[in-house]
Each structure stands twice: as structure tokens, then as C-alpha cells.
Design a protein around this nucleic acid. Sequence first.
RNA 1: GCCGGGAUAGUUCAGUGGCAGAACGCAAACUUGGUAAGUUUGAAGUCAUGGGUUCAAUUCCCAUUCCCGGCUCCA
Length: 613
Amino acid sequence: MKIPKNMSTDTESPPIEYTRHSFAHLLAAAVKKFYPKAQLAIGPVIENGFYYDFGNIKITEEDLPKIEAEMRKIASQNLTFIKKLWPASKASMHFKKEGEPFKVELIEDLGREKGKKRDSKQSAMGKPLKVGMVSTGDIFLDLCRGGHVKNTRELPSDAFKLTRVAGAYWRGDEKNPMLTRIYGVAFQTKKELDQYLCQQEEAKKRDHRMLGEKLKLFTFAPQVGPGLPLWLPNGTIVREEIERYAKKIEQEWGYERVITPHIAKEELYKISGHLPYYADSMFPAMKLDDGNYYLKAMNCPHTHMIYKSSPHSYRELPIRYAEFGTVYRYERSGTLAGLLRVRGFTQNDAHIYCREDQAEDEFLQVMKLHEFWYREVFGIKDFYMRLSLPSEDKKKYADAPEAWRKSLRILKRAIKRSELPVVEVQDEAAFYGPKIDFQIRSVIGREESASTNQLDFLATQRFDLTYRDTDGKERPIYVIHRAPLGSHERFIAFLIEHYAGAFPLWLAPEQIWIVPLSERFLSFAQTIRNEMLNHNGELRIKIKDETETLGKKIREGELQKIPYLLIAGEREKRDNTVSVRMRRKGDLGSMKLEQFLQKVTQELNPLNSEHSI
RNA sequence: GCCGGGAUAGUUCAGUGGCAGAACGCAAACUUGGUAAGUUUGAAGUCAUGGGUUCAAUUCCCAUUCCCGGCUCCA
């Protein structure tokens, strides 16, 4: 748990982290009152609030109001938070007596950390180790490093709320017992709390799963299987428009397209080295006469065979093979979520084969490509890169210290030149090399890796991928794996939420509705439609000829997020104009059809589309 | 995979140990309209699946499947 050290000099209100942390203690005290046998684990501050983990307890969300009420009751007693230092042995004894095994374990670990010696109760200086204890009045005593308000009267009782009950492994390790976690949100004032809750409600309305159904973009069928999305006609348009543009962009950026099959023999994944690392995430093998076949979980090995199909000269490099590669991964059932996390998905994948002296520039170019998609095409500003580094674990990462050092140097230089925001994370690299992922956050707050960019130093030796250098000798190549849109499924899930379903014109499944004011104007509507199609045969135009009122059709158009509605009635027919209504902006008045078409043509270019919502 | 919750009409959801309900959507008729919901009528459900308890189960119990909130994991 992180408690900031900079205590506010303004004594009016304590730092929000102190408030949140104090609420966590109150939560524990209240839970202990109703469930005396509950075992305390940890209760840190998190974004917007706090949580506390308990062992040996069974509660549901229905129990939260009474716990909340008890917390308010405790707060109203004007109890003082008193912090004191206890010798570790005393604290340990106390928690043993109280039946708090998790606290005992925490104290033992504190000893280990401080004493750098297993099971030591001694500090580094040889003096007895002391641990922080905090008491809330005389009703509750907890192990804690601190960061509280002075008195419960400082706590804004109307500005917190217990939100949900969830399961969580003790210390985040799935080998450990499952604890019960209670989440709460807390702010300085009720107004902030209400604002936050309101924002959450709004966020739910943009959830891609809900919009996916309302806008008829995709669906799932239990008979097909969990995590296997079915793309409806509307969603297929969005996806294919993006794919069409991706092909265009990649051609411009020097990629060649390839296509590979969806399955391969076991041997291929043995060569690649994926099998020992990845078997659990792959669908089980199909056993055939000539051996085992696997559904592909990644495209690289297939593409490498294309590279290998002929010898290469240094003059040809870099070679960039791009493909929309559909892969299948047996993700754990509990992790599946709409289109964000599925079991079958398509990556706009590519593999770049280059010489060592080209690797840095190529890696940088890929980052620039990612940035182009984010900033220029979709107007996504809120993203950052994660640089995933290896750990010492020889089983998880290829044992090649020199190669790791070299490739990390290449990556770090490229990252520096990219000037994009980056954070480093340990122990998350691919087994064949370091990588960067572009991180995005779903409206409900789930953070996912979207785009990826990986440097592979291992493929060259595993697949014997080489090129003929100037001196006639064969040299190893570097491979860059990259997917600017990650998977089309996940990226579109994110885009649905980013645009709140109101796609820019080039992506909108239905772009223009012509709304004839009555049956009398139906042929006029058809004339307009034909003229527009003559101008651009790919426009997606629908004539709304149902016998409903204008108001109803306009409402329908807004709800379906149709970019443009053209009203066709007496006036338009007489003046030979169209009356244009723009999504969310309302009536733009009437204009000549050519004028409207000019506007539409310009907007159809993704780089001119409107990003903000 | 693990912890917790859920599954009733196309959708969102009420409801009950003994004829299954609303709103929206859909269909039909009337209405021929000027920038976010016109009126009326109608069709529509093996109450997720399988088992159990009961005179009787959509309702209670058990299992399975799928979905949701988390944890772990990832594009």
C-alpha cells in the first residue's frame, strides 16, 4: 500500500489517501463486529477508494448496507487513531492469540525484509524489530504502517460507499487461498462521491457489450462457444473498413501481404519453442495419421516459413510481411469479456525481417505507425507504452544474456527517439525478446494491452533465418513482431467505447438516412439516393420509408447514431436541395446536394474524421 | 481456472409452490407529417439445460452450461 509522505500542511482536510485508508480500517472494524471470526488480511488505498481482504467470511453485496451503517456509527464516536510501535514478537503473539494468521505472516515477512534473514525478528542493526500498530479508539487494533486521519470525526461519512464484494487471492497468487475482498469508494465530499457514481453510470452506457447489441455489431451463441464472437452485418462493416484502411496504410509503409493457414503440425511449434511455454493457452492438438496438428495461437512460425522459402540478400532487407492472422487461444473462462478478451481473434500482424543495423530504425518506425493510428486516425490521446522486460527466470525467458542486452539497447534507443510516454515492467517480456505494448483502458476501467511491438532475437537461430551479407557470409537476422491494432476484436471493442457507438462517417455501418416526409416524396428520395450513389457508389444510404412520424424517425436515427439524416419534403423538392441533420448537432439547414456530397467526401477520409465525442 | 452473483417475450426487467406480466421492439390498420417517441389492434415465452423434493416446480434443492463483478492471466 502506498501512503504519500507529504502530509498536507493545510490542517483543514487530511490528504484523501489518509481518509481512504482510515475508511479501510473502519471497514475492517465493522466487519469484525458482525463476523468476529473473519480474518484480516490487507486493506490498502486504491484509485478512488480502498478495499480490505478478509479470510474465513461469507458475505454478499446485500450485506454491504449494514456494514456501511456500522462504519458511520463508528465514525460518529469521535475515536482517535493512535499509532504506536510494537516489538514484532509482541505483535506476532497478539495476532496469534486473536486468530489472525495473515497478520502473523505479514509480520514475519517484515522481519525477513528488514533483517534480510529468514524468520528473523531482528532488525538490520540487531535491535528487536518494531512494527507499526494503529488503534482506533479502543475498539480496533490493526497492523499498519500508517497514514490516517487523527480522529474519526474528520472522516466524511456521507462521502464513501461500499461498492462490491469480490474474490482475491492472498497476496495475488493463485496458489494461495481465496479471500473475500470488499471494495469501497471514498472522497472528501459527498458532491465528489455523487459525481463519481454518476460518471460510473455514464460509463456503463458506453460499454461495448451493451452498444454491440443495441447497434447490432456482434453477438455470441452458446452453441458456438464462449469467447467466439459472431460478427453481425453492421459490425462486419466497421471491421472491414478498418481492415481496408489498414491494408492501404501498410502498403504505403512498405509492407507486403501474405496469407497462412489456420493450423500447423506440432513440429512447427516445437521448432519455434512455443509449445513448452504456451501449450496451456492453446486448444488441444488434433491427432491425425501423420501426427498432431494445432490451431495456431500465433502467426509468427508460419510467416517464418515464408521467409525461409527462399534465400535472402542483405539488399532485400528489411522485408515486411503483413497478414490478418486469425489465431485461437484457450483463454481461461473467467477472463473472457465481450470482444475485449476472446478465444478466437484476428491480429493485423506483420513480421519484419531485418539486419541488426536496421533493427532500431525499424522498431522506431513501428512505434510511429502505432502512434499514427492512435493520434491521426482515431484521435486517441490517452495511451502509454509498457516496456516489458525479462526476469532472471531461465525457464520463462531464453537463456541468452548477451542477446537480451543487445536487444534491450536497441529498444531503449528507439523508445527514446519516439518521445512517447513509457513505463517499464519487469518479468513480462516474451520468451524470445523484450517488447512494448500500447495500453488502453476500457470505460469500466479494465486496462488492456492493445498494440504490440516485439523484438525477437531467438527466431533467427530456432528457424535458421539468415541473409547473405556483403562479404558473402550468412548472418542472423532480427525479427520484429508487430500489431498496431492488437487484435481487431479488442481494438474495435475499445473504439466502440471511445466513440460511444457514434462512429466517424467512414466507419459508420449506416452513413446516411433519407427521410421522406410522406409517401409523396418517396420518388424524390430515390432520386437523391441515386444521385449520391452516382457520385460515390460505396456510400451506405438507406431510405426510411416506414409510415412513422418525422420525429420518430429522427429519434431512431439519433439512437442508432446515424451520422447524417436528410429530410426530403415539399420545400426540398421545390428548391432542389436537401435538408441536412447532423448526428448530435441537429439541423444544419438546407443545402444543394453537391455541397452535401462535398462535405461527405471530405469527411470520408479517416484523417479528416471527427474524433471527439 | 478460482471466489461471489445472475439466467422469465427480440431487448430491458417485474413476478409467483397452483391460467405468465409490463415497457420498448416487431406485425397490421388508421394517420401523410417539418427536426428526439401519433393512435388503435395483434402476434410473440418448453420461465437456460438436466435431475431431485412435492398432489403440484418457472418459483425450493443439486448439478451443468452461459453471462456479470473481481482475482490470476493476456492481443
